[in-house]
Write a protein that binds this DNA or RNA. Sequence first.
DNA 1: CCCAGCTCTGAATCGGCTG
DNA 2: CCAGCCGATTCAGAGCTGG
Lengths: 376, 376
Amino acid sequence: MGVMDKVARSQRAAELAESPLPLDQIVMGDCIAAMRALPAKSVDMVFADPPYNLQLGGELFRPDGSHVDAVTDDWDKFDTFAAYDAFTRAWLAEAHRILKDDGTIWVIGSYHNIFRVGAAVQDLGYWILNDIVWRKANPMPNFRGTRFTNAHETLIWASKGEKAKYTFNYRSMKTLNDELQMRSDWEFPICGGQERLKKGGVKVHPTQKPEALIYRILLACTKPGDVVLDPFFGTGTTGAVAKRLGRRWIGIERELAYIDAAAERIAAALPLDESALATMQSPRGAPKVAFGVLVENNYLTPGTVLVDAKRRHSATVRADGSLASACGASGSIHKVGATVQQAPACNGWTFWHREVDGVLEPIDRVRQTYLLATQP
Amino acid sequence: MGVMDKVARSQRAAELAESPLPLDQIVMGDCIAAMRALPAKSVDMVFADPPYNLQLGGELFRPDGSHVDAVTDDWDKFDTFAAYDAFTRAWLAEAHRILKDDGTIWVIGSYHNIFRVGAAVQDLGYWILNDIVWRKANPMPNFRGTRFTNAHETLIWASKGEKAKYTFNYRSMKTLNDELQMRSDWEFPICGGQERLKKGGVKVHPTQKPEALIYRILLACTKPGDVVLDPFFGTGTTGAVAKRLGRRWIGIERELAYIDAAAERIAAALPLDESALATMQSPRGAPKVAFGVLVENNYLTPGTVLVDAKRRHSATVRADGSLASACGASGSIHKVGATVQQAPACNGWTFWHREVDGVLEPIDRVRQTYLLATQP
DNA sequence: CCCAGCTCTGAATCGGCTG
DNA sequence: CCAGCCGATTCAGAGCTGG
């Protein structure tokens, strides 16, 4: 870290200390009213998972006769498209005011609402940078055989305007994807297992999002110390991941039950720790596994020190799946392996080892473990 | 093919012969004006690949048909969006008028325009059935490294209204996908190689779509002989695939160069023969067999005891094709199955089994045997 | 202890025909 | 328009249980 960086960091710490922002806190109340109370140009990112306005009809049963537990909460009900649009434009306008000029917004939705959201985003002057598809590894089937299986959701990523600057950690994303550019289609399982918050065996929130999804977003489009605002906080996935990645967060939520669950969950979250190990699964179907995926899924913890078989070289795993060697080189496992050996190329999977109970094992072993756990 | 089918086909042929539709032809002209000349409720599908960007070369029309000059420099962004919206709503409204009540529309776009298109689709009363993601196997990389690789496009599939019927060949799609339900994310390569139309080494059209994409759409959502309208015909991918699949088509296109290329291409396309066109049928379309018919014809003897797969419930076949369960319930195979399970509904064909040489087989097997023996 | 098999569930705009 | 009946319809993952 250079001198300028240190100065910038210390200035930043001073700013945050005097900040009127409710950092790392959950604000209870209506999202629009609560956003009005926040100062202009004060946060680096808004992540929003607004109501989808599903407009579900009657009951739905599976072929085996069991009942599908649908989203029936009042917060998802709007009388008309016009009412939904008015609500959407109101909170998007507040978000635009609160964002710093170089901040970005992420919104997730399905075909029920995402087109209305996207049009509003454009009308309010935001500039869409990408739309991202979350491909669900295990979506709910279409039980009646009447349509295609609804197997994805859509995210919109936008800056404050056409000429606005923004953060995009291109190298981190490329490293995370095994030295290929990160594409606009991402595969993750839906949120379940240990990660899914339950109370008395019942899910706390009907639409809890997977941590791996937010992890990739924060890693791609924020820097450590950045402030992320989530106006539809729910059970606090954004807060938990932000804490894990060393980002600051602000949550807005109406329902006390969600707030309680979120507070408990975030308190238990440990920065860059293995706490979420069982929770995040991986891209399925791809025979290739990017090294970054192992990090993303907590098979390898950022900060782990890797060495070669003869302990002549060492390097540290970073949060984006890159390595930083003791001699200053950084990049993918292959590139750093080549650099420290002054070789033209290197297979990082077999070159780098981690120590387990005093014994060295190649990181390819971790990949095998991961594949065994995730491949059929 | 049954007698009724033959009658229906011949009626249909007669209708089409008298039809005022320009079947299997390319109409030269502006898409909105050309659509106005087509009769209401006359086509089974509209497939549309409208212009993606907002600079439409001065060919924008308001809903009233008046011309909009979109290239004027002093137009701000709102005006540009408004002009695109007006154009979009105008052609979508015409498409709604031209579609039969059980027809559907497909529109493809990218994040530049698809949100505006989707919102317009909803506002005009269409009912979105799915959004489909075309994952490009070989997308163009993001050369500047400033965003995620834009590796997909989005399609919207919608019926004419919430209660409208529509065609969806569920079994064909499931068969095409190795006996798993077809999902909402489809992977195809971009159009290239032999398929890509070129003239003097230069591609004829900048956004020619892969035939495989249209093939899947027509196979999923139309029947042989159905009429498909493409108001942005370009180089005629829709026409070539429709001809190949035994569907009728109408294309609208402004540019003579595209029309020439499309006409040549479609003339060279070879229709699949009828045996290749046969697709997986849904049991819904198969001839119905009442359970009582099996008893009447001695495929099942009155007094036979049926059980469920786990032998938890049992019932006796009566002479009139009704069942009498051990617990006193009686009625149709479906009703008794539902009653003994205390379920809202039940498919008796798969629920009830009979024992043959100590092995249980569903009574649907008996129905299959009967159908094989009695159908030509 | 392990494995095979069974159960449960997830942001879902999820019939058609007859009387 | 509504009630009632007919009968078609599911994938992957996690967790539990019994052998």
